[in-house]
């Protein structure tokens, strides 16, 4: 890709993810698909952090979270409760005209219940002032009952509905996969996919350095934008954020120092200092360079004081030149 193109894509996509995380880009329903290898909680945390800055009201619906996360405005425990009761509770908080962000820590519980109607439930929440952020654990299998055997799987429905899909990956695993790819080896698998009996989560999961996001954003026009990002964990990023306000910490995955591929021309530029590998010596010594600078080239004559001599042509006749007498004198 040409450097200009990359620059443009970087600027464009970073702006997009920044708007998405800050809730300024219209994404009524953002779906986070996470796995055992990389939990979506750091991302939720990032959303809550930004929502607090933007004074957006955050409502956290918990199906599996015990302790309310820091910084939320309203915590609704929904575990083991009827979905309609939760819906009513949510409706009571919707009275005000403030911007709201409703966060679900997992949708699997609702999805596993064949009686529940996920699209209907979510659509009843979404409004111009309310956006929904929900996590779906992709590795939890669903029971297939005779009634649901012919229905589309809930994840397919959710993906169809959502305006932005963010899949989380562990940085450690992404780096390992990349290094395997670079050497044209089969990419390693992790966790459940690894197929080792008794192994739930591979090592290197939930990388403390940060979280890798695979984003798919759907524009209103229907065009999708796909991009990979990296968000450093807040502890590591704090020196940058502490000083100035709202410095964007998200970077493209390609710009991550460990992921970035060193371009070919960059390596050439590095070699140029030492000279091109050839039988000729093309470099100059300091003395040679000074001598060369002292040589006055002919066209400098034209730039001297009276410069405009009617376009005098400086030309030394050679032997082979055929001088035409009838031409104007030089």
């Amino acid at each position: 890709m040409a450097p200009g193109q990359l620059e443009q894509r970087r600027a464009h996509n970073l702006l997009l993810i920044s708007k998405l995380l800050n809730g300024r880009e219209a994404s009524p329903f953002t779906l986070i698909i996470d796995s055992l290898e990389q939990s979506g909680k750091p991302l939720i945390r990032e959303y809550i952090r930004r929502a607090t800055i933007a004074k957006t009201k955050t409502i956290y619906v918990s199906f599996e979270t015990l302790k309310p996360p820091r910084g939320i405005d309203c915590f609704i425990p929904a575990c083991g409760k009827d979905l309609s009761a939760t819906q009513n509770l949510l409706a009571t908080t919707a009275a005000s005209k403030d911007r709201r962000l409703v966060i679900f820590d997992t949708l699997n519980t609702i999805a596993a219940n064949p009686a529940s109607n996920i699209p209907g439930f979510l659509l009843s929440l979404i409004s111009p002032t309310t956006s929904v952020l929900a996590v779906y654990h992709k590795d939890i299998p669903l029971r297939i009952t005779p009634e649901t055997a012919h229905n589309p799987p809930p994840l397919a429905l959710l993906k169809y509905m959502s305006t932005a899909i963010i899949t989380t990956h562990s940085l450690h695993h992404i780096l390992l996969q990349k290094s395997a790819r670079d050497r044209s080896l089969a990419e390693p698998l992790f966790g459940l996919e690894e197929g080792v009996e008794g192994m739930l989560r591979g090592l290197g999961s939930n990388d403390p350095r940060g979280i890798v996001l695979e984003m798919e954003y759907r524009r209103k026009s229907g065009r999708g934008v796909r991009e990979w990002f990296f968000i450093p964990s807040p502890k590591r990023a704090s020196p940058e954020t502490a000083g100035g306000k709202a410095k964007e910490i998200v970077i493209l995955l390609e710009d991550h120092p460990l992921y970035r591929r060193v371009p070919e021309n960059e390596t050439d530029a590095g070699n140029a200092d030492e000279g091109i590998d050839s039988t000729f010596n093309l470099s100059l010594t300091e003395r040679q360079r000074q001598d060369r600078e002292r040589v006055v080239l002919p066209y400098f004559d034209a730039q001297k004081g009276e410069g405009g001599e009617g376009g005098r042509i400086l030309y030394d006749m050679g032997e082979e030149d055929d001088f035409d007498e009838e031409e104007d004198e030089i």
Binding site: L36, S39, E64, A112, D139, I140, P141, G198, M199
Partner: peptide, 17 residues
């Protein structure tokens, strides 16, 4: 589903194999 669900909530997993 139960096992993986628990693993998602768990703060640490010790797997014996």
């Amino acid at each position: 589903a139960f096992l993986v669900g628990m693993a998602h909530i768990a703060d640490s997993i010790m797997s014996l194999r």
